[in-house]
């Protein structure tokens, strides 16, 4: 079986995988980083969004072997010990989650939105940019508020 190497949240990791292993399976089953979720497994819901070489991707729609030699960031890589990342804190402060299942993907997509659109985001931009992330609890209002507040906090 192929052996792959990557840096995940700054740490070098490697593993022997079947070619068909999805990136999300490698993260969850092999590395036990279960913060990245699988909601739909059909590229629709965005619960599995992680960053590969700084870009948001759906890790259920990428083979682990395609991320060989890449830099991968997951939700587990954001907090500094017990201190939450400003975007995580904003989701908490704004009640941007109920069951929390979609939240890791929402936060990873939110960071990508800030990266490409800056710290001062309007509601229309946030809603358009979150088209690939589905939440079945909140109705999105508090998620949008959280992304806006988190984006601003990241600029402070």
């Amino acid at each position: 079986m192929p052996v792959i190497h990557m840096r995940v949240n700054g740490n070098p990791v490697s593993g022997e995988v079947e070619a068909r292993t999805l990136l999300v399976q490698f993260l969850r089953d092999d590395l036990r980083l279960t913060g990245t979720h699988v909601g739909c497994d059909t590229s629709q819901c965005g619960a599995c969004v992680v960053h590969v070489d700084g870009k948001s991707v759906k890790s259920c729609t990428m083979l682990a072997i395609m991320a060989n030699d890449c830099e991968v960031m997951t939700i587990e890589g954001l907090a500094n010990g017990s201190e939450l990342h400003p975007m995580q804190q904003a989701f908490m402060d704004n009640h941007g989650l109920q069951c929390g299942f979609c939240t890791p993907g929402m936060v990873m997509s939110a960071l990508d939105i800030v990266e490409r659109n800056g710290n001062d985001l309007d509601e229309a931009t946030i809603r358009k940019e979150l088209t690939g992330n589905i939440c079945r609890c909140t109705g999105y209002h508090n998620i949008v508020k959280a992304v806006k507040a988190g984006a601003r906090a990241m600029g402070d």
């Binding site: 965005g46 870009k55 948001s56 991707v57 759906k58 690939g132």
Partner: peptide, 9 residues
Amino acid sequence: IGDPAVRNC
């Protein structure tokens, strides 16, 4: 096309 994560791939 699609959504931001899809457009990145």
